[in-house]
Write a protein that binds this DNA or RNA. Structure first.
Lengths: 132, 132
DNA sequence: AATACCGTTGACGCTTACGTCATGAGAACG
DNA sequence: CGTTCTCATGACGTAAGCGTCAACGGTATT
């Protein structure tokens, strides 16, 4: 059943990633598909993790950070403490994202300013100069 | 006069960069200090260019892009056409920055949502459960 | 002269997240 | 049986931007 076990290609199609990516994630211990002979078969658990991995990437977590978060979940007893920590890490990331956005806002404003300055200069250069 | 010619160290102090960085930029033909024997001496032109380099980096231009823009300026006759092109490149960068900011905004909102969801879960886990 | 600096040129290292080969095994098709 | 697919492993390549040696030269001070 494709629903419980998926080949690498099915995974690629479903999540829009390359085989290389999945093998890479496995090598980083983010995924741990079972083997049928040599071939990888991805379980439900792998899919859940991959979903979280891709989500984490959107948030700008590094793969290493994601691995740690993931490992906390199925490694850790004491769910409450784990969740606490997860939230903390998430908050830090959120702050960082906000800082990034602020910097980006500044850069955007500055660049806008530069551009309108340059445009004025361009207009001046194009405008026929009156003889004195 | 330090005002017209600066040593590598003076440059580093003035612009808060390392010697390695300045040599790296020279190797990439972004700067072209003159030599006094072996030593580099940075001219007014180098400083003007470095200012633009650092500004460009803030805007997310790659060093290669910056080099091209810089070279357009002192390479090109036909200033008007050059400026035109510069503005075009700048506009593209501005659009890209805005796209990035929008993505960042989305990620921030999503992460906020995830966090508040997780916090509610945490509260539920902490709240003593009433016996039925 | 010896020490302490400042400067120089290589050249390799590092990070992240994969892309791209080269090579080979195993299965399906005609 | 030969070709073609899909998959596997392993290793090197890439992008950007420097950091960090190593080994050496000239200058200034003590």
């Amino acid at each position: 059943m494709t629903d419980t076990l998926m080949t690498i290609r099915e995974m690629c199609d479903a999540y829009d990633v390359t085989p290389r990516t999945l093998r890479f994630y496995e090598s980083k211990e983010l995924l741990s598909p079972i083997r049928q002979g040599q071939k990888r078969l991805f379980t439900h658990r792998d899919r859940a993790r991959l979903t979280l991995i891709l989500r984490g990437k959107r948030f700008g977590f590094s793969l290493e950070q994601i691995r740690q978060l993931l490992d906390m979940w199925d490694g850790g007893r004491g769910q409450v403490a784990q969740l606490d920590r997860t939230i903390e890490v998430g908050r830090e990331r959120l702050d960082e994202l906000r800082r990034q956005r602020d910097e980006l806002d500044n850069a955007i404003e500055d660049l806008q300013g530069q551009l309108s300055g340059a445009e004025r200069m361009l207009d001046a250069m194009r405008t026929p100069h009156a003889a004195e």
